[in-house]
Design a protein around this nucleic acid. Sequence first.
DNA 1: GGGTCTCCTTGACCCAGATCAAACCGACAC
DNA 2: GTGTCGGTTTGATCTGGGTCAAGGAGACCC
Lengths: 248, 248
Amino acid sequence: MLHSDLAHSTQDCEACPIRHRAVCARCDADELQVLEGIKYYRSFEAGQTVVWAGDRMDFVGSVVSGVATLTQTMEDGRTQMVGLLLPSDFVGRPGRDGAAYDVVATTNLVICCFRKKPFEQLMETTPHIAQRLLQMTLDELDAAREWMLVLGRKTAREKIASLLAIVARRDATLNLLTPNGKLVFDLPMTREAMSDYLGLTLETVSRQMSALKRDGVIVLEGTRHITVPDFSRLLEEAGDDSDGGMLS
Amino acid sequence: MLHSDLAHSTQDCEACPIRHRAVCARCDADELQVLEGIKYYRSFEAGQTVVWAGDRMDFVGSVVSGVATLTQTMEDGRTQMVGLLLPSDFVGRPGRDGAAYDVVATTNLVICCFRKKPFEQLMETTPHIAQRLLQMTLDELDAAREWMLVLGRKTAREKIASLLAIVARRDATLNLLTPNGKLVFDLPMTREAMSDYLGLTLETVSRQMSALKRDGVIVLEGTRHITVPDFSRLLEEAGDDSDGGMLS
DNA sequence: GGGTCTCCTTGACCCAGATCAAACCGACAC
DNA sequence: GTGTCGGTTTGATCTGGGTCAAGGAGACCC
């Protein structure tokens, strides 16, 4: 599971708290030094685009804070979000120059970047980086496939519940433990972004959010701040088996 | 792009024509010897299940011939196919014991398996195997994300056309070149399997196949044998940009 | 205060695709 | 030939979610 790994690396590696999850699990002094030499930080404001699909991308990196999304757009304007990047997630693709998707900051965002060329060289000389990246990519692949089930077979209500469950779980793991099964978090996205993720319209998202609120599955303060009184209830609504299926 | 790689390895590596695409791009004698020692073949008939989700899986491998599918099932029986495995595709996940999805042979199927433990050890001592596997996994991730767009935003007709385009492209690359822009291939799946892949019902699949036939986008002989008189027309119907977007 | 953004909610209506049901079409067995 | 069985097609009807349209609710500025 991802987050135990994250916690592990956060403790183990002083030089790279959350930032180099991809590489710090077993990093030694030499590698760290190389990494320090090729890294830099970039900040974005909510709404800014990090890269457009097709643009040259001369770095890889990981999200330090904030949330970014990967989206694909058809010529006629239909868009589908294909990835949600939360802190510690990896950005970019070694071995390819152009970005495959639009990467957009949905909140204020900080990325820790590594210049791509030297990073790729480091990958070649340091086997466990590729191994680590492989594990992360396999996790992402599992998440993408999980999402295919959501997109292909779930109802609007189940889709919303699934999204809330994912965000709640990640947020809870990163920030606060659940006091008594109750979960509190902020949605890092607009209704429109939710609809792009779920393959719905923004109106349907809004209606289903209202319905989940009416039925007591969630408590809404404003439009973003959410309390989940009973997480297992939320998972039921998502149509997931007991643990939510998003372990990996 | 996958297939050039495949062609490359098919030529370069006598000991593993199509079979070890994952590892043969730069294999040397020692590695090949190890691989020979831990490999074996398994055959399945159309309809047989290779593994059930959750079952222990003590091998990884690649498809030699035939077609297999990865599917997820919800408790109430709704199913979504999350992957289509064609010859040369990798099966299984290093570093995990249980299968994450049902793997089912949809045609007669031969898999070249490597016992997992020794394969994982080989991965640790042979950096380029992990690197190669990483590239393959990144390709699969791109394919999965492409499919998220199909599932989330495309109409039934576009979905069908997208599926046909994928199968046609892979089949054409593996077998026969297009003589004059015309493409001939056999669908390796039932209407029901198509519906599971596309997030539709089997009836809708059938109707849209009939519609594409009526409109001259495809020519059907029987239910499986398909001729595509104009591939670019098919891509248009799929709503893809000119090259179909499934390059990677 | 009022004006004007952006984001969100709610209502009324419509349609693509689901559902239910019947029939069709080889292939294979007897 | 007849039976039957899996896969497929086609028709009739229903419905979840899309579309169009009208307000609401903050946030920010003047």
